[in-house]
């Protein structure tokens, strides 16, 4: 494997190294995911005492259903944040692809073609983002801000601001159909989370985005396909936003230009709560999922306990601050130098 001859010295040293298992108790307890899971469980226990309705199947399913769009979009967002970018256009892409899909359906195009076209539009918009960022080296914040305005504007132009209802009933199955009493989108969401979490940690091409996000120049000189992977992340993000758009229009049985308004900020917040960093190179899909879950449980609590729903925003903001504070504490302990 190596071109270097082992010196006897080094050989002895390496024999002395005990094989550590990949995971120690300490590293599991210290992980962001564990903390989030524990906090979520704690909240759930408290809520189940305060409101017996919390643990009812109906309520749990409705929490999970409400999460799907955010989880699907935040999955793409996490990849983009890890690779060192940001994607402000996810909410608008959701809106536009939803509008395009429903318009095609209403004009009699088959479901398969309409959905595929919607998803491909998401891929295309993501590819435009990615190309401008990786090829023309333009700040991703600005590129996706522009795309956000364009996609949302296009959606409004196409619909003139109206709702597009009267969708074919068979289309509604996508978002409303159930298997074993659980709506389809939940299965898709869980599948996507597990798939991307696994690929991100274990599949070499996707794993390289951690390197790219940490230091793109060094990654380039290490032989990593930097441009292609940046492009891929934005394409995946566009695709997943479009997928969320399909589910949302199907579930709500209509298309509307303002669907997904503000979703980009929620997705970023969930990713950051889940451990992603604005400077790139950090984050996990599992963490992001738990970030969305935590916010969903808390918001559900507001509803169940008949608190004013208007408090949600305040609490969501505070949780984001808390996540950043925890991160700051962790960094300080790790001994990062200031200058």
């Amino acid at each position: 494997m190596s071109v270097v001859e082992r010196t006897s010295d080094a050989e002895r040293a390496s024999d002395n190294v005990r094989i550590r298992s990949g995971y120690s108790i300490k590293s599991i307890l210290g992980a962001r995911e564990t903390v989030l899971l524990l906090v979520s469980i704690t909240f759930s226990i408290i809520l189940s005492f305060l409101s017996p309705r919390f643990l009812s199947v109906n309520n749990l399913v409705s929490i999970a259903t409400g999460m799907t769009y955010d989880v699907i979009m935040a999955t793409g967002m996490t990849l983009v944040l890890i690779v060192g970018g940001i994607d402000l256009s996810v909410g608008s892409i959701l809106g536009l692809t939803g509008v395009v899909t429903t318009m095609m359906l209403r004009s009699g195009v088959s479901i398969a073609v309409s959905v595929t076209a919607g998803l491909m539009l998401g891929v295309l918009l993501g590819a435009i983002n990615g190309t401008m960022i990786s090829n023309f080296k333009i700040n991703p914040f600005i590129v996706t801000l522009g795309m956000m305005a364009i996609a949302r504007g296009a959606a409004v132009v196409l619909t003139s601001g109206y709702f597009l209802s009267n969708l074919p009933p068979s289309y509604l199955i996508l978002g409303q159909g159930k298997l074993l009493g659980i709506p389809f989108p939940i299965y898709v969401m869980l599948l996507l989370v597990i798939l991307f979490e696994y690929l991100l940690k274990n599949w070499s091409p996707l794993y390289t985005i951690f390197y790219i996000g940490t230091n793109p120049d060094a990654a380039e000189l290490s032989g990593i396909k930097v441009g292609r992977m940046i492009l891929a992340c934005y394409v995946i993000s566009g695709f997943l936003s479009a997928l969320a758009g399909v589910f949302m229009t199907s579930r709500l049985a209509m298309g509307y230009a303002q669907f997904g308004l503000g979703a980009e900020l929620r997705a970023i917040a969930a990713s950051v709560i889940g451990g992603a960093s604005m400077s790139g190179g950090e984050g996990s899909i599992g963490g992001t999922f738990l970030g969305v879950l935590l916010l969903a449980i808390i918001n559900n609590g507001f509803v169940l306990l008949n608190f004013s729903v208007y408090w949600q925003g305040v609490v969501n903001g505070l949780i984001l601050v808390l996540a950043v504070a925890v991160d700051a504490f962790r960094r300080a302990r790790r001994g990062e130098r200031r200058i």
């Binding site: 970023i268 305040v314 903001g317």
Partner: peptide, 26 residues
């Protein structure tokens, strides 16, 4: 918060955006 947490201003001001909007709604 940006100073103390050494956090990215995007995230910090996103948090205040959400929270202050929430307060207005309340």
């Amino acid at each position: 918060m940006i100073n103390r947490l050494r956090a990215h201003p995007f995230i910090v001001t996103l948090a205040t955006l959400t929270a202050v909007k929430g307060v207005s709604l309340v």
